[in-house]
Simulated scan of single mutants.
Amino acid sequence: MIKVLLAGLGGFIGSALRYVISTFFYKLLGTDFPYGTLVVNVLGSFLIGFFMGLVENGFVISSNWRAFIAIGLLGGFTTFSGFSYETVELIKQGTLLPAIANIVYTVLNCLAGTYVGGVIAKLITK
């Protein structure tokens, strides 16, 4: 139960950071391109790679802290970081086809899900 609470607390902090950082970059660079989201996704992907790289290379951290940082904080900051980490792990394991499938399925299905969700919302609000 403590891991659930820690992940939730980390998620709260990560989501708040996502809002602050993305808003900063939209104000800095404008809104003609999703700069804020791009920065958050790239930064979150770097941070999870760095953090999990430390863990995989002997940095000792409790499972509670791992839940707080990797699942909560970075997961709340951007779920793209989790997707990126899992895809890189598939590549490192030599399973290139599942890695490519994960990329294609995730991107296409998420785009389709967003589109279909919008269409359904429009239909039920008419």
Rank of each mutant, 00 (worst) to 15 (best):
M1N: 03
K3S: 06
K3C: 11
V4T: 08
V4R: 11
L6K: 05
A7P: 04
A7N: 08
G10M: 03
F12H: 06
I13K: 01
S15F: 12
A16D: 06
R18E: 05
Y19R: 10
I21M: 00
I21W: 02
T23D: 15
F24T: 00
F25C: 08
F25W: 08
Y26F: 07
K27I: 01
L28H: 08
G30D: 13
T31G: 04
F33M: 04
P34Q: 02
Y35P: 00
Y35C: 05
N41W: 03
V42A: 02
L43N: 09
G44F: 03
S45Y: 12
L47R: 13
L47Q: 13
F50P: 12
F50A: 15
M52D: 02
M52H: 11
G53Q: 02
V55S: 03
N57I: 03
G58T: 14
F59Y: 06
F59R: 10
W65E: 15
R66I: 13
A70S: 15
G72R: 11
G72H: 14
G72P: 14
L73E: 00
L73H: 09
G75Q: 10
G76L: 09
F77G: 06
T78D: 00
T78G: 00
T78C: 03
F80W: 08
F80M: 08
S81H: 08
G82S: 11
G82V: 14
G82H: 13
F83G: 08
S84T: 14
E86H: 06
V88F: 15
E89R: 13
E89V: 05
L90A: 07
L90K: 10
K92F: 12
G94Q: 12
T95L: 06
L97V: 12
P98E: 13
P98Y: 03
P98L: 11
I100Q: 14
N102P: 02
I103G: 10
V104R: 08
V107S: 07
V107L: 13
L108Y: 08
A112S: 09
V116G: 10
V116Q: 12
V116P: 07
G118K: 02
G118A: 02
I120W: 13
L123W: 08
L123N: 02
I124D: 04
K126Q: 10
